[in-house]
Computed example of a mutant assay.
Amino acid sequence: MTFRAVQHPIAASTVWKILHTVGIDPAPRRTGPTWTEFLTNQAEGIIAVDFFHLDTVLGRRLYAPAFLEHSTRRLHIAGVTVHPTRDWAVRQARNLATDLGTRMESLRFLLRDRDSKYGQSFDAVFEAEEIEILKTAPRAPRMNAHCERAIGTIRREALDHVLIMNEAHARHVLATYQRHYNEHRPHQTLNQLPPGADQQSIAVHESEGRRLLRTRVLGVINEYRYAAWPAATTFRAPQVPGRVQRHLTPLPPPPPPATDPR
């Protein structure tokens, strides 16, 4: 039997499928750290980005880019649009760079996928700040797991419970959830503290104050905090429209019992 070699280019994905079918695993990496070790060691200098979509009640699909700082877990939802063109993505990248300001100096890597929404102009915004662009492998969302998890959290805690009316409504909902995510929501990596815990005031101890409730995202999310009791002793009844308001004051102490003159 005679074999004749045929020169034909084969894609790397085809080779991977053949090896995977016959049960041959890829060779282990012989030099350098693993991807998990790299992300852990370089967390302070990595910011990740990924696009996610949301649908309105009328079936219109909107897109938004989510940036996540690995070290602080701070979330940045850059904007919302119906047509995520490359020029629009570049404007959002420039707005993010302006918002971060001097914090851009601590970043070394931008982690993103190979979506066509990104382009050379998008990468140039970060390369101008000496930030290296890291692209994930095709169809490998686990390489950007932190950002993927943050997007999943946005869906589970907010978008799955709210009917989005239009683009303006989507901006309002996402901006409100971004404040909740950065200022109040606890994170396991940060010892159950929010990313902005260093900027928050010292909370009042539970035994020394009262617990206050504040709702976010149209009542979907509840936030609790403790505040000191007011120093005033006068209590005001709730304001009810159309009714005469009365002010309740503490009752005077009862008189001492009468003593027997005998």
Score class of each variant (00 low, 15 high):
37 E>P: 07
113 D>N: 02
71 S>R: 07
44 E>H: 12
70 H>W: 11
73 R>G: 10
105 E>P: 02
68 L>T: 12
68 L>E: 04
126 F>I: 04
117 K>L: 08
93 A>F: 12
28 P>H: 08
31 T>H: 13
116 S>T: 15
113 D>S: 02
52 F>I: 11
91 R>L: 13
25 D>Q: 14
85 T>H: 06
98 T>K: 08
25 D>P: 06
43 A>R: 15
26 P>E: 10
67 F>I: 07
119 G>L: 10
50 D>V: 01
100 L>H: 01
77 I>K: 04
61 R>M: 09
33 P>S: 04
83 H>R: 12
86 R>S: 00
47 I>N: 05
50 D>L: 02
39 L>M: 07
102 T>Y: 00
55 D>N: 04
82 V>M: 05
26 P>D: 08
105 E>S: 11
45 G>S: 15
69 E>H: 03
41 N>M: 01
42 Q>S: 03
58 L>R: 14
80 V>M: 00
121 S>E: 13
114 R>M: 04
15 V>C: 10
53 H>D: 14
46 I>S: 09
124 A>W: 15
73 R>K: 12
110 L>K: 14
84 P>G: 15
112 R>D: 09
45 G>V: 02
62 L>R: 05
42 Q>G: 01
71 S>C: 09
108 R>E: 10
55 D>V: 15
20 H>E: 06
107 L>E: 00
91 R>T: 15
30 R>S: 12
79 G>T: 11
49 V>E: 10
75 L>P: 01
37 E>W: 15
117 K>H: 05
96 L>F: 11
73 R>L: 13
61 R>W: 04
47 I>S: 03
75 L>N: 00
50 D>T: 08
85 T>L: 11
47 I>R: 06
36 T>I: 12
125 V>D: 05
79 G>V: 03
17 K>E: 06
83 H>L: 14
101 G>E: 07
105 E>D: 13
110 L>T: 09
109 F>W: 14
60 R>D: 01
74 R>V: 14
39 L>Y: 07
105 E>I: 13
120 Q>P: 13
54 L>Y: 06
16 W>L: 09
24 I>S: 06
